[in-house]
Design a protein around this nucleic acid. Structure first.
Lengths: 127, 127
DNA sequence: GTATAATATGCAAAGATTTGCATTTACAAT
DNA sequence: ATTGTAAATGCAAATCTTTGCATATTATAC
């Protein structure tokens, strides 16, 4: 009697989402559609999607790690520790660096959502 | 009747530690010395130390984020997603990259423990 | 030293996440 | 279609972490 799998529902939730979501936020949104779903199922399903490379996990400095669909266009962030302001890098700038690391280490780099932390110009002045 | 602060104990625990520890592991080790300590106190104290820049938090791909003392010599890791093997970068290689980012963005970079993920040569062959 | 304020700690309860196990569903081979 | 196997799900319990509030400790100003 199940109309759609949890994974599909998670996929749809992440698809219609600008921002990154925490596991709990995803569970809440899935529950809107599948009201009887168990949290453990959502968490496990999410985990599975990460392991299969469809979803990325990142620590953006918030209270919990956040999830996002892995798209064809990798991107990376620079987050201000103080005010939370986020900058998004075009992939190119970072890709060169990752390629270099790949060449030197022999590892095939899978990081597709790098997050760097810093203090933005505005917050530097405040200090 | 308290002989030493929690923060001091956490500091000592992290000091005598090669590897990175999870919050729970730190709590367990603190409890050895301060048997009556409350977990919430350890977690809060740890949080405080992170906020003050004495301790770094990183997601190393394990079940929970790990903590480490911030030392004078920043270092960075490359972790194999499959077998968990860890490579440690000398700072130089990464520092150049971070300096570049700093120059271009105007952010003062605070990331001092970067973790990249990939697949190590051995695991690539297995596949 | 005393008073005052700020910080750290403990305790209890709530919240979030994980785990073990039984059941159901999907898939493949026959 | 039937069977066998692997994967996904639900449920209950355990575990880990956070939060609110009261108390204790430490630091600061007087």
């Amino acid at each position: 009697m199940r109309s759609s799998s949890i994974a599909n529902t998670i996929f749809k939730v992440l698809e219609g989402q600008e921002d990154h979501l925490t596991a709990k936020e995803i569970y809440e949104k899935v529950k809107v559609t599948l009201s009887a779903v168990d949290p453990s199922t959502v968490y496990r399903s999410l985990e599975r999607m990460v392991h299969q490379g469809q979803v990325s996990v990142s620590d953006m400095g918030g209270p919990a790690v956040v999830y996002e669909l892995v798209t064809k266009n990798p991107h990376h962030h620079l987050v201000c520790e103080q005010c939370g302001k986020k900058l998004t890098f075009k992939n190119g700038e970072i890709a060169d660096f990752l390629n270099e690391v790949q060449k030197e280490s022999g590892f095939q780099i899978t990081t597709n959502h790098l997050v760097l932390f810093g203090i933005c110009p505005a917050c530097q002045k405040k200090k």
